[in-house]
């Protein structure tokens, strides 16, 4: 327990970790502020102003239509007549075409929009968790701190396992608190500048479950960053692996598979699996296929990636990386 306490203290004291977490919070705060400022509750004053704008638009359109009709009639019998359609077919605006609602700033619809915001939060926190996971053990290796610690606690698996446990506990606590704040702030935004309509008990349960899947994604990202940095005994290993994975395994692979006209290209890309995990499903399409029907014509065939499938992939990748890190921790000399 004393080792766990020491590791959580060490994690909280690291300046880089503090700054990175603070930076993430600032980005999240900017999103909340931006969403708050860009949405408005339709107040009587705003409605009145929108109505005035709609009326003005209608009047302008009426004047333009009248002018155009007059010009059209004047041009009849001259060469300019071919520039006009038959004069009685010139568009005549109707009041119904100019609705006040179109001139209102958008209102925040919690039920419709919050799912995307949970995905945004999970993605940002996962990136943060990956970097913090990598630096938490990578800096220990490169600074000699790991060796110092092993002189005190010559149990390698226990030391690495405790560091990972402290990291995951810290990330879980951070994610839970931030998710709760995120939900509360957007619920407040909806209350003040939109609507919470449709948020039944089932809808709230769905939000909580999605946030729980987001929490798992954050922990997986932290564990993979930790594992890769531990394998290479340097933070740069994990960061290099991430860049390599993005460039080679995502952009590169996507291009190669597209050129090869491979079916279901999306199924090879990590973001689609992340989407499947968070949104409960994602669809991959074989754009070269043709599923013909007499009513619909040719339709591309699709496969649906479900959240249990995505969870399985995340679990396998995490176990492989962390398992390899533990194995090398036990078997390699510490020089």
């Amino acid at each position: 327990m004393s080792l766990f306490r020491a590791e959580t203290r060490r994690l909280a004291k690291r300046r880089f970790i503090r700054l990175f977490a603070l930076g993430t919070l600032l980005v999240l705060a900017a999103i909340v502020t931006g969403m708050f400022l860009s949405h408005h509750q339709p107040s009587p004053a705003l409605l009145a102003r929108a109505q005035v704008e709609a009326d003005q638009g209608y009047e302008i359109a009426l004047r333009q239509a009248a002018r155009e009709t007059a010009n059209c009639r004047a041009a009849q019998g001259t060469a300019a007549a071919r520039d006009y359609p038959p004069c009685d077919q010139i568009y005549q605006p109707a009041r119904a075409d100019f609705r006040a609602g179109w001139n209102l700033p958008p209102a925040f619809d919690f039920r419709a929009e919050f799912g995307f915001l949970v995905t945004t939060l999970a993605a940002l926190l996962a990136v943060m968790a990956y970097v913090i996971g990598a630096t938490c053990v990578g800096a220990e290796w490169s600074s000699g701190g790991m060796m110092n610690l092993l002189l005190w606690r010559p149990r390698r698996l226990e030391v690495l396992g405790t560091k990972l446990a402290a990291l995951l506990a810290g990330l879980a606590a951070f994610t839970v608190v931030v998710s709760a704040l995120w939900t509360a702030l957007f619920a407040l935004t909806a209350q003040l500048r939109g609507t919470l309509a449709g948020m039944t008990a089932g809808a709230w349960q769905s939000v909580v479950l999605m946030e729980l899947r987001g929490l798992v994604l954050v922990l997986v990202a932290g564990a993979i960053g930790f594992g890769l940095a531990s394998l290479g005994r340097h933070t740069a290993t994990a960061l290099g692996a991430a860049i390599g994975a993005i460039i080679v395994l995502q952009f590169g692979l996507a291009n190669v598979l597209s050129m090869a006209k491979a079916p279901y290209v999306e199924a090879y890309l990590a973001p689609v699996w992340v989407q499947a995990w968070l949104d409960k499903s994602a669809v991959a399409t074989d754009w070269e296929s043709c599923d013909y029907s007499s009513t619909q014509g040719c339709a591309a065939t699709t496969i649906t990636l479900t959240w249990p499938m995505a969870g399985g992939v995340l679990a396998v990748v995490t176990l492989l990386v962390v398992g390899a890190a533990m194995w090398t921790m036990c078997s390699r000399d510490i020089t």
């Binding site: 020491a6 004291k13 005190w152 606690r153």
Partner: peptide
């Protein structure tokens, strides 16, 4: 880390 922090963390760990 300060020297005090460094030793304090080691003391905790040990």
């Amino acid at each position: 880390f300060s020297a005090r922090d460094t030793l304090s963390l080691l003391a905790d760990a040990g």
